[in-house]
Amino acid sequence: MKLWLAIAVLAVWAGLACFGWLLPLNPSEIDLTRILMPPGADAWLGYDDLGRALWDRVAVGARYSFFVAIFVVSISAVVGTAIGAVSAYLGGWLDHVITRIIDIFLAFPGILLAIALAGVLGAGLGNVVIALTVVGWVGFARLARAQVLAQKSREHVQAAIALGARRRRILLRHLLPLIGASLIIEATFGVAAVVIAEAGLSFLGLGIQPPAPSWGSMIRDSSRYMLVSPHMVIVPGMALMLVVIAVNTLGDALRDRLDVRLRGGRASSTN
């Protein structure tokens, strides 16, 4: 996907999420005469098995996927980065303990811990955010820890220590800007992961609850009608795929532009 196209897709996604309430969307309105109607000139993206307009449902679903992703990634990024950076900077037994905890969280494969947590906490929007954040912070913690370890012996940090700067100042002013680029890249790919995870939990019936439309639950509900109305799976599926591909494209582009490793390590001083 071209970068401009990816940015356009993301703009539509964010626009629908933030300003969708300005549009006349009725995701739960039932029109019995239009049950399973395929996409067409007067049907937009078609209708589902209850006669609800798929365009309205996908557009409102964008709201859930967008805000869940933004919330989860921002909380995970702040908490994870703080834990990882402090752990690496202070070192000692604290670092040892935190590293072990990170290892344990990383030992749960993929979305499994989120499935378990969402299953135990009960379905619902808030619990989805909690479950995905509990899983999400680890990646940031590991990255921030590794980056701070790599950067903390640099001259300007040593100089700041020698000048008597406080730890908080050194972490926030002298180390965080250095690792910011990799954190932004991690956060971008994190958005794609959370969008998929939220849809996955909703697909399993552990996420956003009906009648609220989540792309994941729309895909699940479509399975019984797939032969007669394939548009019921294709419409939310395409929405999900477009957003994920767009986010990944943006992540790749950011990595090419920001990643210090690709520019021979020297450029990091200008960040």
Partner: peptide, 22 residues
Amino acid sequence: SMLGVSIPNFLMGPLLILIFSL
């Protein structure tokens, strides 16, 4: 490869069923 990482299992499965089974 790009498509493969961007299509989650719960979408890939139904799509494959649609094409190869139905």
